[in-house]
């Protein structure tokens, strides 16, 4: 690019110099797209390489060679791998993930419902966990090395150390069985009212919040602590600002980039990593759908779930990157 001719090179350079922010963001978006394409190939290839095939699992005892060949031909599995990949990719680009081999229903339709449920659970957990984590992180900086900081640290460490299925069962035991103040199982269905829904998913939400809270809170604490020793924090103190105001107004804005990153990472985990929690609470989300599909080798469903999870992950990380870039005043306000 740098070797382009004068005529071609100078407008590109001036664009980049005039809009450094936009050009970096555009760059990130293109990179994300390329990454997503690579992931789609990996998922397709990986699923293909799995041992066992759908036809024999589906037919079970009656898997005669003819029957297997019949089903293979019916599903188009006798065509070359590359052709099938591009077929599938072409469909995906139009929003069509194919037909489930097991239920013969449209994958897109079913995924749509399930994804909605998963995102609802994740969003609800995020709305509670993210502000809570950042507040606790700032509080723990404010009281660093004193009792409140230590309490916050011990509790968050305990929460992060317990596996989520264990936390889930504990919550069920106490809140649903012993005290009877929460609902179990957390199965939602179409036509359920919004408030009823919230009530139903209280326990899985609490489990997810406990799991992601500690990581975000500790990173917030570390990120803010690392700017606390900056000269401008001393300036804030010598201006007579209170400790809390200095943290919120002067330290936090400069610790945004790492905080945004860890929040995005945890949001991605909330969507992608809910598999276990969904199974524990019998919640009809993507995770459970995917686990069911894997057991019967229902490849179109597994591929669709994998690709959507990857897309969510990439999208959130790209958003985090872009937000972190925007948070940098040097890029937002070039000289």
């Amino acid at each position: 690019m740098s070797n382009s001719t004068e005529a071609g090179g100078s407008p590109a350079r001036s664009l980049r110099e005039r809009f450094p922010l936009l050009s970096i963001i555009a760059q990130r978006m293109v990179l994300s797209l390329i990454l997503l394409l690579a992931v789609s190939a990996l998922i397709f290839g990986g699923v293909e390489a799995l041992p066992g095939d759908f036809a024999s699992t589906y037919l079970g005892q009656s898997a005669t060679p003819e029957a297997v060949a019949n089903i293979t031909a019916e599903l188009g599995l006798d065509r070359p791998l590359v052709t099938r990949y591009f077929d599938w990719l072409g469909g995906v680009l139009q929003g069509d993930f194919g037909t489930s081999w097991a239920s013969r229903n449209s994958v897109s339709e079913q995924v749509g419902n399930r994804l909605g449920n998963s995102l609802f659970l994740a969003a609800f957990a995020a709305v509670i966990a993210v502000p809570l984590a950042i507040c606790l992180g700032m509080l723990s900086v404010h009281f660093r090395d004193r009792i409140p900081d230590k309490i916050i640290n011990v509790i968050s460490l305990a929460a992060i150390s317990l596996p989520e299925f264990f936390v889930g069962y504990l919550l069920i035991l106490y809140f649903a069985v012993n005290f009877g103040i929460a609902t179990f199982p957390a199965t939602v269905y179409q036509g359920m009212g919004f408030l009823e829904r919230l009530q139903t998913i209280a326990l899985p939400t609490a489990t997810l919040v406990l799991v992601v809270l500690a990581h975000m809170m500790r990173m917030t604490r570390a990120a803010i602590l690392s700017v606390m020793s900056s000269a401008y924090m001393e300036t804030a103190e010598l201006k007579g600002l209170s400790g809390w105001r200095a943290i919120v107004k002067h330290a936090a804005p400069n610790a945004l980039a790492p905080i945004i990153n860890v929040v995005a990472l945890n949001l991605a985990y909330l969507v992608v990593g809910v598999v276990v929690v969904e199974v524990v609470f019998v919640y009809p989300g993507m995770g459970q759908y995917m686990v069911d599909a894997v057991t019967v080798r229902d490849m179109p469903v597994v591929q669709a779930c994998g690709l959507i999870f990857a897309a969510v992950y990439i999208l959130l990380n790209m958003l985090a990157d872009i937000l972190a870039i925007i948070a940098n005043p040097r890029l937002r306000h070039p000289r």
Binding site: Y232, T235, K249
Partner: peptide, 10 residues
């Protein structure tokens, strides 16, 4: 060093 003593974010 005023460069370090001013908060870069404001």
């Amino acid at each position: 060093s005023a460069a370090a003593a001013f908060n870069p974010a404001h």
